[in-house]
Simulated assay, not measured.
Amino acid sequence: MHISAKADYAVRALVELARDTARPLTCESIASSQEIPFRFLKSVVGDLRRAGLVRSQRGCEGGYWLGRPAGDISLLEVALAVDGELMTLRGEVLTGLAYPGPAAGLPDVWREIEANARQVLADTTIASLLLRPVREPVAV
């Protein structure tokens, strides 16, 4: 499964917004804090705004706020807002995928992987990421 840069940046931006809800944050401050390219982040935040996951405030005290409470925003919603689909195969959705002969069972495996990933993302909220303990990366 491929996790897009857009999905990764979107979640990181939302976690940054959730960390400090007392004031709006600018894209510049989010990009700097999360080490995200500013231009790319502007596009991602636009997708999040259209999906209602963030709201904006203009003016010198302006910036972005969460559109809903962090506990009500799942990672699944975020991924779908910025990518449209969770998992595709060569750009096609998995629903109608079928293979002939001995590979006939493979599409069911791909769909099962997608269903499991969908469940993990649906069960994980922006708020839960703030509470998650930080672990050291594991070398593979």
Rank of each mutant, 00 (worst) to 15 (best):
M1L: 09
I3W: 13
S4D: 01
A5I: 09
A5Q: 14
A7R: 09
D8Y: 08
A10Y: 04
V11E: 02
R12C: 03
V15E: 06
P24M: 07
T26M: 03
C27K: 12
C27A: 15
E28W: 05
E28Y: 09
E28A: 14
E35T: 12
E35C: 11
I36L: 01
P37T: 00
P37M: 04
F38M: 09
L41F: 07
V45D: 03
G46L: 04
G46S: 09
D47W: 09
R49H: 12
A51Q: 03
A51Y: 04
A51T: 06
A51L: 03
G52T: 07
V54R: 07
S56C: 02
Q57K: 14
G59Y: 02
G62W: 06
G63P: 01
G63I: 03
Y64A: 04
Y64W: 04
W65I: 01
G67L: 05
R68D: 00
R68P: 00
P69T: 05
I73K: 04
I73C: 00
A79D: 00
D83H: 00
E85H: 15
L86H: 05
T88N: 05
T88G: 06
T88K: 15
V93M: 08
T95Q: 15
G96S: 12
L97G: 04
L97Q: 02
P102S: 14
A103R: 12
A104Q: 12
G105A: 13
D108S: 13
V109A: 08
R111C: 01
E112Q: 13
E114I: 02
N116D: 12
A117D: 06
A117K: 09
Q119P: 04
T125P: 03
A127R: 08
A127L: 10
L130E: 04
R132Q: 15
R132K: 14
P133E: 13
V134G: 09
R135T: 14
E136A: 15
E136H: 11
E136N: 09
E136M: 10
